[in-house]
Write a protein that binds this DNA or RNA. Structure first.
Lengths: 199, 199
DNA sequence: GCTTGAAATGAACCCTTGTTCAGTTTACCG
DNA sequence: CGGTAAACTGAACAAGGGTTCATTTCAAGC
């Protein structure tokens, strides 16, 4: 039988993913070598291949899992009937989720170009599904006359860019607290689409 | 004397920068080799070193020049007394400038991590100056009571992220024209800070 | 305690990297 | 037309890349 206590496989596997995520985010996928990852994990480079078929899969799996987690968390939210409330909830959710995972977010948005076509298509489809969720909210708000939007697709991308930008500067323990930041971004999002902030 | 007509140096130099810009934007600095650049220019790798001391300088110069151009263009704008007008002008300017140079923009925002500390400091200072220009507009609008902003620094970064996001999707000849896009972004920016769109 | 097999080593594989440089080409100047 | 210097080649360098694999380690189960 497989070993249990004392076995390292259940520790090394996740550690590789964690280290790779941090290094990829910090220096970029192409700039990080398998030997660097191995060194930080405390293992030889060859050992990495017990946990991943190759470097590319390490990246692709990481991105896919991040986006699947994001979509799953989004699906767990209630669906408020009021579009303004739905948008405020989305904005808070998005900022909060991204603030807590800056490395994964950065990689998912920046390393798309380093994916082979097959992996790229998978990841892009997931991202598209997420954007569609926001666009549906905007569409409904516009149909109900509470949002004023010349173009919902453009607004979707503009809002996501604005909200995701939080990862560029937010640091835990900084000048602004997390709750505060969520509120400000949600307000800006609501105002940007022509709805008053939720009180 | 130096040759003039027939000399390639005044052609090869700019071509190297142009090719490098496109490749860095497409694949990332670390993923592009000097041999790839040379091949696209139609020259041997060694010849690149007649025009740049090393690969790192190629990147750093590119980023510095982009940001200097951005700041110079910004400085050429008039300074409208009305904050809302100033913000609308800034938004239009930012989107327009970025739409026309997607590769340079992408590199300036994404390859910061690949700069050596000395180059990084220079580039970061330029970017900071640009952000400060927008923050000054927001600050003045808030002081005059026409913008409602809990935090001007956060708003600055949120707006820049939103506006810069245009490079993620805008393509010349697409569904929306450039003028149209400028207008929509400017409106969203104004609304986001609590000012009505300029008419 | 001995066997077993998963976990990890460490050396090797071949390829590509950034960079250098002695030598060749080329087109202008005098 | 010959000399000159700029522009470029092409081969070499040492270092590091991703990946493989025969071998060693060692805790778990009998």
């Amino acid at each position: 039988m497989a070993r249990k206590t004392g076995s390292h496989s259940e520790i090394t596997g996740p550690r590789i993913r964690a280290v790779a995520e941090r290094l990829f985010a910090r220096h970029g996928y192409a700039a990080v070598s398998m030997r660097q990852i191995a060194a930080e994990v405390g293992v030889q480079a060859g050992a990495l291949y017990l946990y991943t078929p190759d470097k590319q899969s390490l990246l692709a799996d990481m991105m896919r899992e991040h986006l699947e987690g994001l979509l799953a968390a989004l699906a767990d939210l209630p669906a408020p009937p009021d579009p303004a409330e739905a948008l405020a909830q989305f904005a808070r959710f998005h900022v909060d989720y991204h603030i807590l995972r800056p490395d994964a977010v950065f990689i998912a948005y920046m390393e798309l170009r380093n994916l082979e076509p097959a992996h790229f298509a998978q990841v892009e489809a997931l991202r598209r599904r997420y954007e569609d969720a926001l666009e549906a909210i905007l569409q409904r708000g516009r149909d109900m006359g509470v949002f004023s939007l010349p173009d919902t697709k453009l607004a979707t991308l503009a809002l996501i860019a604005m909200l995701t930008g939080v990862t560029n500067w937010y640091r835990e323990g900084g000048r602004l607290g997390r709750a505060e930041v969520l509120g400000i971004y949600a307000d800006m999002a609501l105002k940007a689409v022509g709805a008053g902030p939720k009180r």
